[in-house]
């Protein structure tokens, strides 16, 4: 069997607080094959963002192992790209120079010209041609998130970590960005982990959805989404999709510690 690109094995972690240790992850297992796209859903505050920091190597778990491409993660690696709910673009840079930021830090061996060409190409891919020289403050929230997405993949990371990137957008903009994500994945294949609160988003974008239990989080349920690859927004309205959403909702309710009957009442 192929070795998964991201392999998280039985990870446990607790934050140290004034009131003693606060366990956030308790037996989390997750593996993503190369080119796979896994969505992670779970109740609020269950440790989803901790998971992203573990994969990025920004923190080391108390117990368990995180493997990336056959190597144990022991610290930050340049082979990771990240995008957050807050697009955190640098206001003093143009959109183009914002997208080029990772290339200034990761040694790619690319010439300045090639770096710029790549950034321009990615911006055109997400529909931001003509906005290269604008400042972030001149763009709408959706456009900023598109630029943030370009920045996260400009250095061709092995792993793309998306921490609720569309969470703050309105419903229509969000659906636009879902389409963009499929387009980007087609042209610039990546292996990704998507943290989200939106169940529709999870089955629309990912090919596997992992439900985490409430804090401390462990892997509670894994749902495979059939027919990976680009899809149409209409697929969200099929009976098959409705069934998947129902399963996920049911699992979330269990994770929240509520009996389903009680929750639906």
């Amino acid at each position: 069997m192929d070795q998964p690109l991201i392999d998280i094995k039985d990870v446990r972690h607790a934050y140290k607080t004034d009131k003693g240790p606060l366990p956030v992850l308790d037996g989390l297992t997750l593996s993503v094959p190369e080119g796979g796209f896994v969505a992670v859903v779970g109740p609020s505050g269950c440790g989803k963002s901790t998971l992203t920091r573990l994969i990025a190597g920004l923190m080391i778990p108390d117990e368990g192992e995180v493997w990336l491409h056959g190597k144990r993660v022991k610290g930050p690696r340049s082979t990771v790209g990240m995008a957050f709910q807050n697009p955190v673009l640098l206001e003093w840079r143009s959109i183009l120079r914002n997208v080029m930021l990772p290339l200034e830090i990761v040694a790619t061996g690319m010439s300045k010209k090639d770096q710029e060409d790549r950034a321009r190409y990615l911006l055109s891919l997400v529909g931001l041609s003509g906005f290269e020289d604008k400042r972030p403050s001149e763009l709408s929230g959706g456009m900023r998130q598109r630029a943030s997405l370009c920045r996260s993949i400009v250095h061709k990371p092995e792993v793309l970590i998306l921490d609720e990137p569309f969470g703050a957008l309105d419903a229509f903009t969000r659906e636009d960005l879902w389409q963009t994500m499929h387009k980007v994945k087609e042209k610039e294949p990546f292996t990704g982990v998507l943290i989200t609160h939106d169940l529709r988003e999870s089955i629309y974008l990912a090919d596997q959805v992992v439900v985490l239990s409430g804090r401390p989080a462990r892997t509670q349920h894994v749902l495979d989404v059939p027919d990976p690859g680009p899809r149409d927004i209409e697929t969200l309205y099929t009976p098959q999709a409705a069934e998947m959403l129902a399963t996920l909702r049911h699992q979330i309710q269990i994770a929240q510690g509520r009996a389903p009957e009680e929750a639906t009442a």
Binding site: G57, L58, P76, H155
Partner: peptide, 19 residues
């Protein structure tokens, strides 16, 4: 998040400060 984006790329503290 600003710090995380640069740190996840392996940037040093000095780089984060200057950039």
């Amino acid at each position: 998040e600003y710090r995380d984006i640069l740190r996840s790329l392996g940037a040093s503290k000095m780089t984060i400060f200057w950039k």
